[in-house]
Amino acid sequence: MGAASLIMLMLAGFTFAGMAIFISSLLNKGSVNRQKGEPYECGIPTKGKTWIQFNVGYYLFALIFLIFDVELIFLFPWAVAAKQTGWLALWEMVIFLLILFLGFLYAHKKGALKWM
């Protein structure tokens, strides 16, 4: 069916989710209660603000991921062509991955992969 199916699937997804939410909103009748609006924190009103400057630990992984993901994108065309290109492709990729691995080791030694 081709790329058009993407639009179709997207529409199907929206329809499915939208219909479900719509039907649900028709079926239930809400009641008003102030406590319903409280964020869940085990029954105790929340203290302090939620949207804070979060510890950098989580983001570091996202950054390292970015580096490796770009590398992965390079690998895809290589992988398709590796069989035809032969030994040259293998050695090139060995060198490429070696350099990458050195970078990875550096990041590891620097403690970027240590959870804080």
Binding site: L6, L9, M10, A12, G13, F14, F16, A17, G18, A20, I21, I23, S24, S25, L27, N28, K29, G30, S31, K36, G37, E38, P39, Y40, T50
Partner: peptide
Amino acid sequence: LLKEGLTPDGADKWLFHAAPIMAIVVSML
């Protein structure tokens, strides 16, 4: 389906409602 969907007071309403739809659309795609 029959349950009431709650929205917390302090929530970012748009993102809050969009997130489940987004999840469905992605898995559909």
